[in-house]
Simulated assay, not measured.
Amino acid sequence: MELPPAPTGADAVSPQAIDGVVMARLYGEPLFAMPNDLYIPPDALEVFLEAFQGPLDLLLYLIRKQNFNILDIPMADVTRQYLRYVDQIRKHNLELAADYLLMAAMLIEIKSRMLLPPKKTDEGQEAEDPRAELVRRLLEYEQMKLAAARIDQMPVLGRDYLRAQVTIEQAIAPRFPDVEVADIRDAWADIMRRAKLHQHHRITREQLSVREYMGMVLRRLQGERFVEFRDMFDVTRGHSVMVVTFIAMLELARERLLELTQAEAFAPIYVRLAYQPS
């Protein structure tokens, strides 16, 4: 029986490595022991269990954690625990500890004032509890902290939900601009100016019916897709006929039997039947 060839190169493993335990791999190569020149910084393995926003946050945490009455704070116990935490901060970040040291000095001052016999005010009243100002600050801070927590729990765009976007495909249909009253007035004034060119000095009495001319306008538009507004008037028949025709067209437009439209702003006005397909 022939034995398989022995591994060579990267596949070969020394007898000592076979009995060892691989601790890690560096660039694909197994490490069976820690390098002698390996340096681990002291701060690399630090673990911060609590992160506080400031001295008041730390002080409130110590009070609430031990169920102390915030209106009757045991200053000795709280100050002792507070100073223990400040000592830990001073070892690593002296600048950060400055604010905490100021609060520690305030706690020590309050405790010292509590040890002295109380003095009455000039009015003969009992002096205020040395802890009163600190209690007020703690209660205000706790209210603001709870309010900030409630605001943070509210849904936030981009964090808790995304704005829905819907694309609606609309049919490509031309929308003609609405005809303004001023445009109709200008068109009517232009027709009246043209009518003056065909004036006759003939005085007659003619009975004109708006309802009759409404029917004439409808018959004029039958079978027509669009008719220019100015072509709806017969300037040779005088002002009275044009006035009645104009009133008839306004009545038809009010009853939604007639449509006035333009191709674009300041363009000529066109007339068509409202029920006729475009």
Rank of each mutant, 00 (worst) to 15 (best):
I110E: 09
L49A: 08
L83Q: 05
D43F: 07
D231C: 08
F32N: 06
H92S: 11
E206V: 10
E224W: 06
Q222R: 14
R137K: 15
M114S: 12
D183Q: 09
K91F: 03
L218R: 14
V181T: 11
K65G: 04
Q222C: 03
R256N: 12
Q88K: 13
L146N: 08
L221W: 00
R194W: 09
K111I: 04
N36C: 04
Q16K: 12
P7L: 09
M249Y: 03
I110D: 08
A253G: 04
M192N: 11
R80N: 13
E180Y: 04
G124N: 07
M114V: 12
L208W: 01
A12V: 05
D234T: 11
I191Y: 01
V271F: 00
V244Y: 01
I73V: 13
Q153H: 06
A132R: 11
A182F: 09
M214V: 06
Q53R: 15
A76H: 07
R131G: 07
P41G: 02
I89Y: 00
Y82R: 01
E212W: 08
D72S: 07
E50Q: 11
A148I: 05
L138M: 10
I168E: 12
P177L: 02
L221H: 00
A195T: 15
A173V: 14
V217I: 15
D234A: 12
E2Q: 09
L107M: 06
I108F: 04
L221E: 00
L146R: 09
D57L: 04
V217T: 14
L38D: 05
A164T: 11
A253L: 06
E206S: 10
S278L: 13
E169Q: 08
Q81H: 13
A274W: 01
F176K: 02
A195F: 06
A105I: 07
I184G: 01
R159E: 07
I172F: 06
T261L: 14
R202K: 07
R150Q: 14
R150M: 09
G9I: 05
P130A: 07
T79L: 02
L208E: 00
E206C: 05
G238T: 10
R136S: 10
P130N: 06
N67R: 11
R84K: 14
M242H: 04
D234E: 14
R64H: 09
H200N: 12
D99I: 09
F48R: 14
G158V: 13
K119S: 06
G238I: 14
F68V: 04
R131Q: 15
E128H: 03
I191R: 01
A98M: 10
R137C: 06
E169A: 07
P30W: 01
R137P: 06
L250W: 02
P74W: 03
R163L: 12
L115H: 13
P55R: 00
D19I: 11
R194V: 09
W188Y: 10
D122N: 11
E128R: 07
R136Q: 04
N67Q: 12
L258Y: 00
A76E: 09
T8Y: 02
A24P: 05
P7M: 03
Q262V: 02
I172A: 15
P155T: 03
R175T: 12
Q276C: 05
Q143C: 05
M192P: 03
Q153E: 14
L3K: 15
M34L: 15
T261P: 01
